[in-house]
Amino acid sequence: MKTLTIAAGITLAAGAAVAETPVLTVYTYDSFVSDWGPGPAVEAAFEKTCGCDLKFVAVGDGAELLSRLRLEGARTEADVALGLDSNLMAAAAETGLFAPAGIDIPKLDLPIDWTDSTFLPFDWGWFAFVYDKTKVTDVPKSLDDLATSDHSIVIEDPRSSTPGLGLALWMQAVYGDGATEAWAKLNKRIVTVTKGWSEAYGMFLDGEADMVLSYTTSPAYHLIAENDDSKGALAFDEGNYMQIEVAAKLAGTDQPELADKFLAFMLSDEFQSIIPTTNWMYPAKVPASGLPEGFETLTKPAKSIIFLGDEAEKMRKAALEAWLAAAGR
């Protein structure tokens, strides 16, 4: 326990020393702040102009981020939460922890209209099954096609992973009450279900399955970072489910102006141009310089599916139940 006491002492001393520069604390998910994520570049760019210290706190994934904020409640140090998943917006709004952003929202480049003024999108993507073009030639055109094909797939668990939940909601949107039936058919193609995206994607790259549940932007990584154009993503006739990642200002922030400044910066060209090749998602507002070279080769589904707000909350439970019911058969 002595270490803890000492650590507490150091914390107090350190806190006093940096009190002159305002600190903006941004809670986000872990991969955002890693050396290979957008975090380091975003921090450097914002600190150049804000006259502040931007401090990232990394918390698991987008869903764990919300759990953490609920755990900390009103006492939280966070000024901004960055990286909440659009499926959790209703649950997030219900906590009362967030406040509307005090900025003018520029016109966004999303496939859907955006009306919420508390949760602001910073990037988005379509979930899709990613495959190896050299191995799979007869590409399925729909979820039905995939279920009746002979391709093996690996997916993530909806309870522990954002893409997994995305697929469950996708199935729910397409099949409604027939989702359990549809899952029972699709399950025959599923090699296994992993805890998170990393395990599933690693297994796919090792050849354990023909396809993996990921994003339409995944092939861009292989193309741009590895010069490998062998990966493709499937666009389905019924549309692909979307993920929108949002950020919001905390109601209890002690730096409301700085938080708004950050949210405005988040939608500026500088921030948005960092996103595509670090987070491997589409920027919420395409910067003047356009998308990086290679993004034009990506598959674009003709239709976008997404549940927002209370509907997402309601569907989340139904989607999970359908998935579990199919597995119990």
């Binding site: 668990d157 522990s160 599923i190 296994t192 279900v193 992993t194 998170g196 395990e199 119990g328």
Partner: peptide, 13 residues
Amino acid sequence: SFAVALTLGGGPR
């Protein structure tokens, strides 16, 4: 056990 059981167990069962 969690991730091992899930990944090698093959699904929600």
